[in-house]
Every structure is written in structure tokens, then in C-alpha cells.
Amino acid sequence: MKSTNFFKKHTLMYGASLLLVSAQFACSKTETKDTTATTTTTTQTSDQAYDDYKNYVTQMETDVRGGWDSTATDWDTRMETARTDYDQRYNAVNQYAGEFDDTRRTEYEDLQSRWNTAWTTREQQYNTWKQTNQSGGKAMTKVDMSSMDVKKVPTYTATNIRTAYEEFVAHVEANKSNYTNDDWKMVEMYWDQLDDRKNAIQSQLSDKDKWEIAKAKTKYQTMKAGSKIGNTASNVGSETKEAGKDLSNSKVGEATKDAGKAVGNTAKKAGQKIGDVVKDND
């Protein structure tokens, strides 16, 4: 009788243990499944990332064509958000750029060019708004320089450095009249490091990329020289007027004249470089 009870007792214990193990295994399996499902929903495929990027560029073009909303007062935040949103989408799709076929690669390059055009127009609209939307009688002309972060330069590859040049030139073109001396220092520091990075990966660039980069360099050098001459002459003239001095025969005019010659020489040399690139490609 006791033997029977002993056997029944242990049989119940074993059964309970098996039920407990089964329950834990089922719970663990459910948790694993849930985690996997969560990870899958947050990962974009190449097609999803590309479509997201394409739609964002198209939407920006639509917004720019729609004109500037002068009733809004939060444009500083809007511009920062728009730039951040674009960078996120660009980084998401650019990781797949090496896998694109010729058709998609061509369209991808066109989308980048369309973005640069739309964003330059948007920045011009933004700067106009800042100059006319005065606060306390003083025009708001501070330029967003976050895109000139030199920490990004080492990450550029043969796939995206041409875009980096084009975006750089677009920023300068849209903001050159509002750059302070400190802004120009930041611009030139970024430019120097961008050029060093390009030289480091020169052998990996396509002929088309070399050509477009050469054009961007020519455009930047001309804009930089012309804008800095204008800003310097304007600032000196204003300060002198306040002091009641006559600058009609001052060194400012000579400096401007000499700088003007430098602009012409810079453009001429850059044009020769582009010609050399084409000649080498032939």
C-alpha cells in the first residue's frame, strides 16, 4: 500500500515538473517571436528606403512651388526639422546605393540634384523671410551652419562625396550674403577637409563625378571671392561713414579692385582644370 502511494506521489511530482518546463518553453518561444516581429517592423528594405527618399524629395519640391507661408512664425524649427528628416532618409537609402542597377542609380542621382535645387530655393525663401521678419527693429539673419560639420567629412565615400560638394555649393549660394566672418571661417575649414577627403578617394571616383566636382569647385571659388569682396567693402564703407571719413581714394577701393582680378584668375584656372579633366577622360 505504501509502495503504491510512493509511486503515485512521485508520478504527480514528475508530471507537475513537466508542465512547468513546458510552460516556460512556450513563454520563451512567445517572447522570442514577439521580439523578432518588433525588429522586422523597424527595418527598411532597399525598395522601402528608396521610395521613402523619393517621396520626401517630391514633397519638398511641391512645398517650395507652393510658396512661402508668411503666416507661420516657427520657420527656424521647420528648416532644422526638414534638413534632419532629409538627412535621415538619405542615409537610409544611401547604404544600398552600391546595389542599384544603372536605371535606379541614374534616377537616384537625379533625385539628389532635384533636392539640391529645391533646398536652395527653400533657403532663399527662408533668408528673405528672416530679413523681413524683424524682431526689435533688427533683421534676423543668422545662418544655420549645422551642415558644415567637419565630423561628417571622413564618412564620405566615392558614392556620396559628389553630393556633399553639390550640397555645400548650394548652401553657400543660398547664404553667402548673410555669412559672418566666423561663418566664412567655418565654410573654408569644411571646404579644405572636403577637398582632402576627395583627394584621398580620387582613384575611386567615376569620370562623371570628377567632372561635376570640378564644376562645383569652380562655382564655389568664384562665389567665395565675389561675396567676401562685397561684404568686406560694404562693412568698411558703413563703418567709415559712421566715423565721417571719406573713402573715395582709400585702400578699400584698391583692395576690391585687386580682389576682383583674383576672382577672374580663380575662375580661369578652375576652368582650365575642368578642361584638363575632360581631356584626360578622352
Rank of each mutant, 00 (worst) to 15 (best):
V150M: 01
L20G: 04
N178Q: 14
E254R: 08
Y50G: 04
T62Y: 09
K261I: 07
A72D: 03
D52Q: 15
E173D: 07
V263F: 09
T103P: 08
T43P: 06
S135L: 08
K217S: 04
Q204Y: 05
N181W: 09
A72W: 06
A170W: 00
D195A: 10
F6G: 11
E109K: 07
D209Q: 05
I161K: 03
W184M: 06
F6H: 12
G98D: 09
T58G: 08
R162W: 01
T71M: 06
T42G: 07
V172F: 01
R78F: 02
T42D: 12
K9M: 13
C27N: 15
N175G: 03
V236K: 13
Q193W: 05
S238R: 08
K228N: 15
T43Q: 15
E107N: 06
T222K: 06
T36I: 08
K273H: 14
E173C: 00
R89T: 04
I213R: 03
K219R: 08
W119E: 10
A270Y: 03
A164E: 00
N181V: 14
E239A: 15
K228G: 06
R162E: 04
A23C: 07
D85Q: 05
K268Y: 02
S177F: 06
K152C: 01
Q221L: 12
F25R: 08
